[in-house]
Nucleic acid binder design. Structure first.
Lengths: 194, 194, 194, 194
DNA sequence: ACATAACCGAGACGGTACGTCAAGTCTTTCT
DNA sequence: AGAAAGACTTGACGTACCGTCTCGGTTATGT
């Protein structure tokens, strides 16, 4: 490999700067020149690494997802493991620019590179939740339960604008795990499983 | 009121064209000139009505939300009413450009005009769901239940890329209403309701 | 039935307002809406009278030229008659908006309507000067003499930015009438009159 | 000096294209996009060099004036030197787009940038003519003589629409230099120098 | 050791979209 | 019916950003 190697200092600064700019100004409000300025480098350093703005955003997002390193499940209680996982996820989303960047990029799923990053991240979270839920005696509706829990996080972050509190997570986990008494004595008729 | 009045034909065409362009090309890919062209009018007709692109997008989104007119609850069964409401919502989101436009604009909540539209729409949906759930004997955790249901819809639409099927809705309603047996014999301790 | 005094008021106000706006802001800086505002009328009142902006400007210019009503020559002295004529012309150009309007429109001779007005005005001035100069015993080079005198006025107004003073006119008339001694003992050879 | 330097090819093409467009279509008829197209470059290349349309026009005009490089006076005869100078000037005005551009810009002297260019060009011509006329035994009325000669050129170009012929220049020079017999035996009385 | 190759910051290049403004036309209401 | 107000289409203006290219200069490897 000939020539001067790329400087990691520049590459790291670029990914971080991109995530912060995305979180602060949204995708449209983020400019290549602004990223370069914040990273203390130049546009050309960006285009030497990434083919275009979307690839840079995708890389920054993927890099940001690496910041979420959930603790392994304790296997004491499914509810407790879920609680620890979801609260850790919420903490990462609120305390790092990752949450803001996700908000900024969530509507660019029509771009394949962005979509791929989101998909991989979602798969990772599904897998982690599945590994917790697998410990329950019954695994019926597992995917629906996961959808409900991840939906709660994404709904809070993307739509309501703030991530649920620990108490809300606990109530939701209770409901999703079926730890509550039936509320409606007359379910719809003819549905499977009722 | 003196002078020539604004033509409703133009105003309506603009809002529709904007929604379609947003759904098809995303916010960044939507151009003022393109909207004018699709609406069969001119840029100036737009800027006479809306101060800028974001105001136009917000107005088009608000107009799009009016397209969802849920049937009134039948009061026969909470589960059935929820099912009808959610399926109707999903139907509107998939069969009109509203769903695409929401996807395109969901990451522009940092713009106050856009955020206000989303907030109002969400409030409307919360209210409708609350009016259904109010019929349950107990109203504990009502907001959390609503969050779970709306979260499922938004998660499906914004993150997974497709709105849940009728079957998925039914499973989720079962869980949220507590129509299932407890799955975990050991809930976390000290939480209310356990 | 008597005429329509209101209409004449509007027409006159339009021509005057146009001349003033042209003098103050130049042709490009003059707007139809601005003229209408200054004239206390509306755009439509303009377009009911003139097909477009250039026609309005041409009409205003032609109307402005009517403001120059030179005194008839006294026939006492050609030099004196020239002096009176040129000073009167200069006075009109500086004391009415005509001068400014001419400056503003002089570079629009490529528009036929404007050119026609200028041509007619120039012809009028040539004719007047010719009627003064016809009184000289010799009429050689009459057109060249007229060109020199009108050229002095137009050069002062259009290029130097101010109309010549009375003293400058007198010196120029002296030269043009040949009332000075030869300055160069060696004229070019072979030219007629040397 | 950091960064990529401006390309002279682009700068030159812009000035030339501007002059030609001005000469052909007038100032109002000249568009930035049209200039860019004719120069084979882009709007942005223009705005990187000039703050606005007037600055571009002023620069193009100043550049155009550089095209007139008069031959040095031969010092044989003042009349002959004047003739050579004026005919050379007329030749430049008719054979390059400079004349047309001057016509197009002459009415924009109210814009300081344009006025400054005209003023400097006029000063240059006054200086050249002064250096020729300085050789005459008497220098009385030198500025008036210069005004008459330059006025003839500008009158022909700006007002009459064509530059005087060589013969007309010769007659005018004769008059201005006083190489003709007095035409009016009765000058106005009491004027200085009569 | 030094030539080659790829890096670095800076900034010009051609393009495209935004938001403003004016011209000229059309439609409504008021007098 | 005409005046006033203000809508309409069209198209230029000046700004900002994107992605590419060029500049002078720096830093590693390979012969």
């Amino acid at each position: 490999m000939r020539g001067r190697p790329k400087e990691n200092r520049v590459s790291d600064a670029l990914l971080n700067a991109t995530l912060v700019e995305l979180a602060e100004g949204g995708y449209a409000g983020t400019t290549i020149a602004g990223i370069a300025r914040r990273a203390g480098t130049s546009k050309q350093a960006i285009y030497r690494r990434f083919p275009d703005k979307t690839a840079l955003a995708a890389a920054a997002l993927a890099n940001g997802f690496l910041a979420f390193r959930p603790d392994p499940p304790l296997r004491g209680s499914v509810a407790e493991d879920l609680r620890r996982y979801l609260i850790g996820l919420a903490k990462t989303l609120t305390e790092t620019p990752l949450g803001g960047a996700i908000r900024s990029l969530s509507s660019y799923r029509h771009i394949p590179e962005i979509a791929a990053v989101f998909e991989e991240a979602e798969n990772g979270q599904r897998l982690a939740l599945r590994q917790v839920l697998i410990a329950t005696p019954f695994e019926a509706d597992m995917e629906t339960r996961i959808d409900l829990l991840l939906g709660l996080v994404s709904f809070g972050m993307l739509v309501r604008g703030y991530v649920p509190t620990a108490y809300e997570f606990e109530r939701a986990i209770h409901l999703v795990l079926g730890l509550v008494a039936p509320r409606d004595p007359r379910p719809f008729s003819g549905l499977p499983g009722t």
